[in-house]
Design a protein around this nucleic acid. Structure first.
Lengths: 153, 153
DNA sequence: CCAATAGTCTACTAATTTAATAGATTTAAT
DNA sequence: ATTAAATCTATTAAATTAGTAGACTATTGG
């Protein structure tokens, strides 16, 4: 499950992507428009800043902006920053590899193989979806609302 | 993240699959061989029984066995029984659909579209991997241990 | 029938993670 | 100097996860 924190991060970053030419955007603005608890959002933005994708200016007229191009910030990156590994079990993570506590022998663990497939499929999607893609998708959905997309819920 | 509980369930069921012709297998046996805390395993097995994939006999000489063919029990099924939806957010789940709390408008939520892709890719793998597949994989890994598989960790 | 063995039920607890909140501090603009 | 904004430290509340304890019930074999 994606945490609320990660979802808030995605929403905030997407908002900043849309507002990119507006310059600095302040926390209260993001919190209000995206309905994110302000204090919680504060912590999230500091986190994203520490991870190098946000830039901030303090004081009056201060605020946040993206410090990288939205075409270079992937959903996978963002989720990893907030929630950690995409992998369903630690032993199949690329960037956060860890031996599973319960695992007797990694080399002959069948569960591991299946979960590796899941992690690879997930990463293939999330690491190739960038903020610009979400922005484009949003624009599309706004217009096509009358005629809904054909995927099944 | 897959919970330990779900992982224990998978291990227990795989053990029962391997022991299928041995008839009934008791909790202590599974717990010991798979190194699962016995009392915790008890609860898990009751859960799986309630979900209709295990059969049990009480009393001396009692124990557990699969109540369906291992070729009909998918990893996806098992995980859903223990951890709930495969979907990373509730609004893209097929079997456990729920509106996301934070969501203002589902129809124009970009995050939803990406997460739907992830849920579909995950389900495609887990719903098509059955206990028999894991068993076969295990047999393969046991033999080929000398020459490891060529996938990357 | 009774002792041993094995599943079942109810209840609790402990640890961890998630989702915040409060309040003081620092920085910059006007 | 005042105001608006980010930042830092600390705490808390709720939920989830992982596990434990102990009494109860059913079956078998002597």
């Amino acid at each position: 499950m994606l945490s609320k924190k990660a979802k808030y991060a995605l929403k905030a970053l997407l908002y900043l992507t849309k507002q990119q030419q507006a310059g600095l955007v302040n926390i209260s603005d993001i919190a209000e428009k995206e309905r994110i608890p302000k204090k919680f959002l504060e912590a999230i933005l500091v986190d994203l800043k520490t991870n190098g994708i946000l830039h901030s200016v303090r004081g009056k007229k201060g605020g946040y902006s993206l410090s990288k191009e939205p075409s270079e910030i992937s959903v996978g990156n963002i989720i990893r920053m907030i929630d950690g590994p995409l992998a369903p079990i630690p032993c199949v993570s690329h960037l956060y590899y860890r031996k599973c506590d319960e695992c007797q022998d990694e080399a002959t663990c069948e569960i591991r193989i299946v979960m590796k497939k899941v992690r690879d499929a997930t990463a293939a999607i999330l690491d190739e979806t960038f903020l610009t893609d979400l922005e484009a998708l949003n624009a599309y959905l706004q217009v096509e609302t009358q005629e809904p997309l054909d995927f099944q819920i």
